[in-house]
Amino acid sequence: MANRPAIFAEGLYKRYGKTQALAGLDLQAEAATVLAVLGPNGAGKTTAVRILTTLLRPDAGHAEVAGLDVVKQADQLRARIGLAGQYAAVDENLTGFENLEMVGRLYHLAGRVARQRANELLARFDLADAAKRTVKTYSGGMRRRLDLAASLVMTPPVLFLDEPTTGLDPRSRLGMWDIISGLVSDGTTVLLTTQYLEEADQLAHSIAVVDHGRVIASGTADELKQQVGGERFEITVARGGDLTDAMNALRPYSVGEIQLEAERRHIIVPVVNGAHQLAAVVRDLDTAHVPLEDLALRRPTLDEVFLTLTGQPATSDATDNAAPDARPLARSNA
């Protein structure tokens, strides 16, 4: 029992009309970790969350959350999970306090306990001052925090966050990341879906990359990057330095084709175990009298991982102006 994963899904299928939303999805998350389900719009992330939170029955497959079957033990399970969605499902015309009190009552808490718990959560999420205002007057970040608070009324052991930071400004996003990290260090298991590579990289203990309703790769961020390979030195030769000398000095380290952008005086050398060779490369370039402007060891970004895995670029979504620094995935033909 103790070693059962907190979230376990095997071969989930779901079809809506002609759309195969899930096509044999497998997921697994150990207790007190964050599993990021990463994928572009329409990859099946939300469908997966809806099945795991008992909102939807799978056409086929099997899933357990907190040791309970999501179909056969749905009623018991609902008392042990929290769900916060990308559409901030709180009532706009109620105050923050009324929203949380209502959720507490619907969890069948005693009235006094529901009210105390509402106040406690409002204070914890920095909403105490806004407790008596209707949610209509809240900012996007405040709504999201209230939505998250509503999902935490019963301190559920497993929490599902469907794109918790989509549409938030960078500051609110960082705040949300802190909250999520705090919950996990208190022992909560979190499954979050995201289109943001950076979010998965920052928060997740493991990542499942989903495309067309299936997991196409999974592991830690480092493992995924490794799986794709593509470690390289990127060198910019200072003006006056001889590019041919530089190429000759670098050739022994290369495990593939060296790229040269002569105009920018930029050389890219694919390598393996670059960190161990860094000192030697610098020494050899020095011996060859190649003056450097810049030298860096680069590992692939999750962007590149996604590109390699799907054969589709992970392009920036032009409509998402709220978070210019974070790039959501979007499939160009989606």
């Binding site: 008992t54 909102l55 009623d75 499902a89 709180v90 706009e92 959720v103 619907l106 069948h108």
Partner: peptide, 17 residues
């Protein structure tokens, strides 16, 4: 449309309510 029904359905409350 606002996702409130999803929230209600994820709670252990009476469906009919």
């Amino acid at each position: 449309q606002r996702g409130l029904v999803d929230r209600f359905r994820s709670l252990p409350m009476a469906k009919s309510a």
